[in-house]
Design a binder for these strands. Structure first.
Length: 454
RNA sequence: GGCCCCAUCGUCUAAUGGUUAGGACAACGGGUUUUCAAUCCGUUAACCGGAGUUCGACUCUCCGUGGGGUCACCA
């Protein structure tokens, strides 16, 4: 096959959304094809008429688009019935298969199916990842390959299509490995040249069991909705079960195409580690420009913030850089907002006056209120002197820095920050002052003074 | 249960017979600092067990143990 053009495929059945594990199968097939200038095909395996749904097909296609995995052609098995019928007839004519009378065992079972005449032999194949695998197919018996001429079953349709589409490498999850011999039997019955096989390791949940619904988000669209970036998803998925052998961790899709190598694919299953995904997603967020982060802010800021009387899109855009520093995915914006961490940007915070005192305050207990008032007045006076046009973090800091040093930084900066945010934890007072604006900053300092006077 | 596959820090992994077993995430500690975040620096932490083979095994072989997959008229 050395000179043959590489053709790979991803063959999902539209009985559910694109599973996150499926993303990696698709990705590896995509990478391998692109790396070799070959073709990557998408084949919708919708032979199960009851369980296949258009809605799932749409969802899968949508996820592909989002992930940026382009395919060269798309097929549906449901549109290929004539071809299967032709090959089914051929197999029966050659006495490699036969129509079998059955006693239905379960509801829905037919009283007649098409069975493959199993030669009952040991099938050995060379897997590009697992190595040589040898399995006795005897206990498979004469397995069913079609319910009738119009209704082929997975193994048969899969083989026929892989042949018809000229697939050179069948790469899929390791759960398919034990099924491969029966498919090889069908290939051999037709006398077709076998494709190569590569069974990639499974992705496991943190408890090392198979990834399933109860482990959380599985549908690729959920990751999109949570605000993960597609580049982070593909990068992260590529690194489960594969590594370049170097210490590089961040890869664009293009770099993955260049560096991906089947020879370096793991044999053992890997756990899906969401913390590392979060870290990686953050790395990608850091690469984004202000436009992208601002529109993400606008999109993910929840109604509890939007409904505040002081709300403005302008403020939301302005605090974007501050928020970006403390999130790893867009939905964290919502989480932050819902935890009350964003409210003070839009309205005067509510707090107790004693909270204005720095924990390690040097102020004398019996006169501390008047002392603190004096400090805040001192801050105000210096800030007022700042021109509106010069109202930025650096100038603000410069204008009060020496003063805070003279009265004790903590005793000045803590109350200033508290007056602006009403929170024990927040960005520093200089940044806060800048985004709040001169007028609002002075107003909040006044309010702090008023509180202290009562 | 039969058959198949797998086995290095908690997790993703590097190592292709000779390394102080390396990196990343996480965790922890520290610097910076008014708090948080960010950032920088550092620490803890692994070869599943037992026999071989060999001068020498994480690396090779066998057995055991553990984990996973698969055994449909689903894919």
């Amino acid at each position: 096959m050395t000179d043959k053009k590489v053709v790979t495929r991803f063959a999902p059945s539209p009985t559910g959304h694109l599973h996150i594990g499926g993303v990696r199968s698709a990705l590896f097939n995509y990478l391998w094809a692109r790396k070799h200038g070959g073709e990557f095909l998408l084949r919708i395996e919708d032979t199960d008429k009851e369980r296949s749904k258009k809605e799932f097909e749409d969802s899968i296609l949508e996820s592909f688009k989002w992930l940026g995995l382009s395919y060269d052609a798309m097929y549906r098995q449901s549109e290929n019935t004539e071809v299967y019928k032709k090959y089914l007839e051929q197999l029966i004519a050659d006495d490699k298969a036969y129509i079998s009378k059955e006693e239905p065992k379960e509801p829905g079972d037919r009283d007649s199916v098409i069975r493959f005449r199993n030669p009952n032999k040991v099938v050995t194949f060379d897997d590009k990842i697992m190595g040589t695998i040898s399995i006795d197919t005897t206990d498979l018996g004469d397995f069913v390959i079609a319910k009738d001429f119009e209704t082929p079953v997975f193994h048969f349709a899969n083989v026929v299509d892989d042949f018809e589409m000229g697939i050179t490498l069948v790469m899929r999850g390791q759960e398919h490995a034990p099924n491969t011999p029966r498919q090889i039997l069908i290939w051999e019955a037709f006398g077709w040249e076998l494709p190569e096989y590569a069974h990639i390791p499974l992705i496991l949940a943190p408890d090392k069991t198979k990834l399933s619904k109860r482990h959380g988000a599985l549908d690729t669209r959920e990751y999109r909705n949570l605000g993960y970036l597609p580049e982070a998803i593909t990068n992260f998925m590529a690194l489960i079960g594969w590594n370049p052998g170097t210490e590089q961790e961040i890869f664009s899709l293009t770099e993955l195409i260049e560096q991906f190598d089947l020879a370096r694919v793991q044999k053992s299953a890997g756990v899906f580690n969401i913390e590392k995904l979060d870290w990686m997603n953050r790395e990608y967020i850091k690469l984004l420009g202000p436009d992208a982060t601002q529109s993400a802010m606008l999109m993910y800021i929840p109604n509890i913030i939007r409904n505040l009387t002081g709300y403005s899109n302008e403020m939301t855009a302005r605090i974007a850089p501050i928020i970006m520093e403390r999130i790893s995915k867009w939905s964290d914006i919502t989480t932050l907002a819902e935890a009350g961490e964003l409210t003070y940007y839009f309205e005067q915070p509510v707090y107790e006056k004693d909270a204005l005192f720095f924990a390690k305050t040097k102020l004398t207990t019996d006169t501390k209120y008047t002392e603190l008032i004096a400090i805040i007045e001192g801050l105000k006076m210096r800030l007022e002197a700042l021109e509106n046009t010069d109202w930025n973090t650096e100038s603000i800091k410069k204008s009060i820095w020496d003063y805070t040093e003279s009265v004790g930084r903590g005793d000045a900066l803590w109350p200033m920050r508290y007056a602006l945010s009403g929170k024990d934890k927040s960005p520093d007072p200089f940044i806060l002052s800048e985004v709040l604006g001169k007028e609002e900053t002075l107003k909040r300092l006044d309010i702090a003074i008023q509180k202290l006077q009562n």
